[in-house]
Design a protein around this nucleic acid. Structure first.
Length: 981
RNA sequence: AAUGAUAUAGCUCAAUGGUAGAGCAUCAGACUGAUACUCUGACGGUUGAAGGUUCAACUCCUUCUAUCACUGCCA
């Protein structure tokens, strides 16, 4: 071949080992990703992963069930991606980590949507048989489960998709019912009649978690209550109250005052004619508020007559006395009364406020003496007054809130009646936040209704535990044993559990698990219970029917008789409870029907991972449910992430048009871009997302992709027989291996600590700064031009192989599609999946801190050289760095000695380089330095000689090999070897 | 209103109390053998504000401001 070698026209390119790869630069993720999903599905990669993990130590992430209603939004995408990365990385760290996804299927929002269909047709769902309605809800939930499942899969989220858990499967409904019965049997389930948040629109009680506060304008009224019995100076005086809910006045039964507030008697001395507060009228008011109140009543001048001791006011009259409100109204001290708004006297309607009810409870005897038996019920479930409410009930009852969530005529009718009775002192309007149903967005009212509660403070017996403790005590103890990531979650959950009231678990709805108990009409006793001797049989009947037919069994005709037949003396003495369980109880029970029941899972889980809003939601409901039944938390650790905001840090909302939909990002850029965003952000805080951030992600992705593409292209020329032993490698290779070792430590640690951002940024920077801009750039000459047998070339290829192994693994949990593509591109289509790999072990012998420190110095010097070359380039003296052969002066002997053994032409990517130990005097005055006094100075000389046609390096030995007059000696040798291959 | 978190370059993130750094974006240049790629350089910061502790503060303390979350809520 030597003869033909020197042909002038020969294309030397063909003798180079240039990168060869079919891995495209352009990702085309939106189109390509679905193919991978299909492939993973067909090859059952998840199943293979399970098989591979068998026998390993388990790591259980328990998936919190999203609500099966509506497309997934960016928050879901964030949450599922984080979980996916946790599970994948644990598997790769050597654990057996399954991923079972779940959905929350019962509850009001779905019911609401189904009802909407009826409403649109002008029908009332109450006319539909319960189980038909429930079937429609089930169908609706099913549709959304499938749809969300597809959306989550599209995100690249893996898991046991064929066996997701749903809170509405018959088995789940059975277990949930069984959990409830545990509370019935341990005595913490009780019924009470007290005011709860009530949604008129949805006709149900709501828990705190289902309520949101919105700005609302309420009417305000100041109402006069004439003093009936008191010391004589109060003759004809009136106690004034203030309220923003005039419609509660018919429910008024008392007035409360502040024990530590000072009160006075105020007489109006001047006021407009016909003023509601007329001249001569005397009012009892809190001193701190008197001026404001009288001002609001348009009083022009007044006298403070004397102090008032409110304890001496024995009785006042309801402002509508004589019209059916003839009971005595008494005054009680209340520690909730403040002097910042109102009059210092608070009107008490025991059926319409928590404080009101509390005051009633603690003064029950006194109320009874006043002839007030029980909590007065004034408003029905539909928002109308009861027929027996004087003035406002009857045939045309007033309406507090209508079916559309608007306030009805009740406020107006009450105000008018008060005005007519001369009981109104003033009126106005107030903008304030007011509780609304988070589902219907309609305002809610406080309304006393019989509801079922779980007692949080009642000591209960837990099997296997010595002493009786309350759920709250157990929950607080469990919180102490839980790991919180970030740690702030500890205080958050603890504070909430410390302060929360008893759990209202009943809803007056149809779609859910029923509170499957019976109550005695006479005694109110509950069965099943711990003191009913046939409880076990009754429970067995209930649960087996649920297992067979689902919770629908409860609503079948004749169900009550079938359940109770033979267990009680007289079935007619018992009522079947028809309330539905709070859906938070459902999801709070997932540990029971998923973690404890599924093969391959266990309870407690290692991790619950949800948005920080779940402190009041799932983290808490799961904790309370588990503590009330098992005396411990269902999780060992709780990880929370923040909310996703728009690019300006504002809340996303449809109306603002600032939402970023995951579907859009995927359609336009691909799921890996979305995942990359998740990885790069600090998810423990609130994150932002917007066009700029996505674009940044796209750029980062491109860079990363090309770095991997370079690896692939060069590895085309690698095979195991070319592998070089560590000890035979050049220093540059050994430095890279040291970095691999360091990064391996960092990446494993970061994954272990759920610090994905740290891992991602470290790996990404390594790829761009150390590989692309440094190592690859330097080694291109050796990789492309050196002889096939060259030790440097082979060493570099060995390192590239190592890089390929670690990088594809490190990034696999994050960029699930791209890493699979990279992996298969090299390993072939039959190579299984990158997702079946563990993080590969990195040889600890690669660690060499000393060498790394030395090469930090090398890089510093290199920076001076590239800086000097840049000046030459700007001056148009050189273009390519290969045109230069710089002189490098080192005036620091220690530095010189440390780095002088290196090939500086190679490091600087120049055709030549001379490193010399110098004194300040040796350095030419015009030498380039980065700063004054720097020990490194560079004179950027031009390289002398001829340009090698193959490597483009300038060398004076070009042509010395007469067979290859165009080539340098090195390249001539390489070509000779190439030709011989 | 309470509580908590956060506040560093246009954006995303770093910096055991010891000279504020990366990447992306922008701009300028080079290369044309990673080629709609790659490389180099420049620009960019009163570290939210004001005090304090310290030889030294992004870091510790106090107060404020802003954003977000969450809790509560005007009877």
């Amino acid at each position: 071949m030597v003869d033909g070698a020197q042909t002038e026209q020969r294309d030397w390119r063909e003798t180079l080992f240039l990168p060869v790869t079919s891995f495209p630069m352009k990702a085309g993720l939106p189109k390509r990703e679905p193919d991978f999903i299909q492939r993973w599905d067909e090859q059952d990669i998840y199943g293979q992963l399970r098989a591979k993990g068998a026998g390993r130590e388990q790591y259980i992430l328990h998936d919190g069930p999203p609500y099966a209603n509506g497309d997934i939004h960016i928050g879901h995408a964030l949450n599922k991606t984080l979980k996916d990365v946790v599970v994948r990385s644990r598997n790769m760290l050597g654990f057996d980590s399954p991923f079972i996804h779940g959905w929350d299927c019962h509850g009001l929002p779905i019911e609401w949507k189904v009802e909407e269909k009826y409403r649109q047709k002008g029908q009332n769902k109450d006319g539909v048989p319960v189980n038909e309605f429930r079937a429609e809800c089930r169908e609706f939930a099913d549709i959304w489960v499938d749809r969300q499942k597809a959306e989550m899969q599209r995100l690249g989220v893996h898991g046991e998709w064929d066996a997701s858990y749903l809170t509405m499967t018959f088995d789940a409904e059975k277990v949930i019912a069984g959990e409830l019965l545990k509370f019935a049997k341990n005595g913490s389930l009780y019924q009470d009649f007290k005011p709860v948040m009530w949604s008129v629109v949805e006709k149900t009680a709501l828990a705190e978690a289902e309520v949101e506060y919105e700005e609302h304008e309420s009417p305000t009224i100041f109402v006069k209550f004439p003093v009936v019995k008191a010391n004589s100076e109060l003759d004809g005086a009136k106690v004034v109250i203030w309220t923003t809910t005039p419609w509660t006045i018919p429910g008024n039964r008392a007035i409360s005052y502040g024990k530590h507030l000072s009160y006075g008697l105020y007489e109006v001395t001047d006021a407009p004619e016909d003023n509601w507060a007329g001249v001569g009228e005397k009012f009892c008011l809190c001193d701190a508020l008197a001026e404001r109140v009288l001002g609001a009543a348009k009083v022009e001048s007044f006298n403070r007559l004397c102090d008032i001791d409110p304890t001496l006011i024995e009785e006042v009259a309801h402002p509508l006395r004589g019209q059916g409100y003839d009971f005595p109204v008494k005054l009680y001290a209340g520690d909730f009364v403040t002097d910042d708004t109102g009059t210092g006297f608070v009107h008490i309607a025991p059926g319409h406020g928590a404080d009101d009810y509390g005051l009633y409870l603690s003064n029950q005897r006194s109320f009874r003496e006043a002839g007030i038996e029980g909590v007065p019920q004034t408003v029905k479930e539909d928002g109308y007054y009861h027929a027996d409410v004087p003035l406002f009930g009857g045939d045309e009852p007033a309406l507090v809130i209508n079916q559309k969530g608007k306030f009805g005529d009740a406020n107006k009718r009450v105000i008018d009646a008060l005005a007519e009775a001369g009981a109104l002192m003033a009126r106005g309007k107030l903008r304030h936040s007011y509780p609304h149903s988070w589902r219907s967005k309609a305002p809610v009212i406080f309304r006393a209704t019989p509801q079922w509660f779980i007692a949080i403070d009642k000591p209960i017996k837990i099997e296997g535990q010595a002493d009786e403790r309350s759920i709250r005590e157990m929950a607080l103890a469990a919180i102490d044993e839980t790991q919180f990531v970030p740690p702030a979650g500890y205080n958050r959950l603890k504070a909430m559990v410390e302060n929360r009231p008893d759990w209202v678990i009943s809803r007056q709805r149809a779609w859910g698990v029923p509170i499957c108990i019976f109550t005695n009409k006479e005694t109110g006793a509950i069965i099943p219970s711990h003191d009913f001797d046939k409880s076990d049989e009754l429970e067995a009947r209930i649960l087996s029917s649920f297992a067979e037919k689902g919770a629908d069994a409860w609503f079948e005709d004749g169900a009550k008789a079938q359940y109770l037949d033979g267990l009680v003396d007289n079935v007619d003495e018992w009522d079947q409870v028809m309330d539905i369980l709070d859906v938070w109880f459902d999801s709070g029970s997932t540990h029971a029907f998923v973690l404890e029941e599924r093969e391959g899972l266990r309870s407690p889980a290692d991790l619950y991972l949800e948005g920080s809003d779940q402190h009041r939601g799932w983290f808490q409901s799961s904790l309370l449910e588990s503590c009330g039944t098992r005396g411990r938390a269902p999780y060992k650790a709780v990880l929370t992430h923040g909310f996703t905001l728009d690019d300006k840090g504002k809340k996303m909302s449809k109306s603002k048009g600032n939402s970023v939909a995951p579907q859009d990002v995927i359609r336009q850029y691909g799921a890996d871009i979305l995942r990359l965003w998740v990885m790069s952000t600090d998810y423990q805080e609130d994150q932002r997302i917007g066009q700029e951030m996505i674009k940044t992600g796209v750029e980062s992705y491109r860079k990363l992709r090309n770095t991997l593409r370079f690896l692939l292209g060069n590895l085309h020329h690698y095979s195991d027989d070319l592998k070089v032993e560590y000890k035979d490698m050049p220093e540059l290779e050994r430095v890279m291996l040291h970095r691999i070792y360091e990064l391996d430590q960092l990446v494993r640690e970061a994954y272990k600590n759920y610090d994905f951002k740290k891992a991602f940024h470290a790996v990404f920077q390594f790829c761009t700064v150390e590989l692309s801009a440094f190592y690859f750039d330097i080694r291109k000459d050796a990789l492309y031009c050196e002889a096939h047998s060259s030790l440097v070339r082979r060493s570099s290829l060995t390192v590239l192989d190592e890089l390929f192994n670690v990088l594809t693994a490190w990034l696999a949990p994050m960029l699930v599609f791209t890493m699979e593509e990279v992996w298969l591109s090299r390993m072939g289509d039959d190579a299984g999946s990158v997702h079946l790999r563990d993080f590969p072990p990195v040889n600890p012998a690669f660690k060499d801190e000393k060498l790394a420190a030395k090469w930090e110095k090398v890089k510093q010097v290199r920076r001076v050289v590239t800086g000097a070359l840049e000046v030459e380039r700007r001056e148009k003296r050189i273009g390519s760095s290969l045109e230069a052969a710089p002189l490098i002066y080192i005036t620091d002997d220690a530095l010189y000695d440390a780095i002088s053994d290196q090939d500086w032409a190679e490091i600087a990517i120049t055709s030549g380089a001379t490193l010399s130990k110098a004194t300040a005097g040796d350095v030419p005055a015009d030498a380039f330095t980065l700063e004054d006094g720097s020990p490194v100075a560079v004179v950027p000389q031009l390289a002398e000689g001829k340009k090698c046609a193959r490597s483009w390096k300038i060398s004076d030995d070009v042509g010395s090999d007469t067979a290859f007059p165009e080539l340098s000696v090195r390249d001539a040798k390489a070509v000779r070897e190439f030709d011989a291959l």
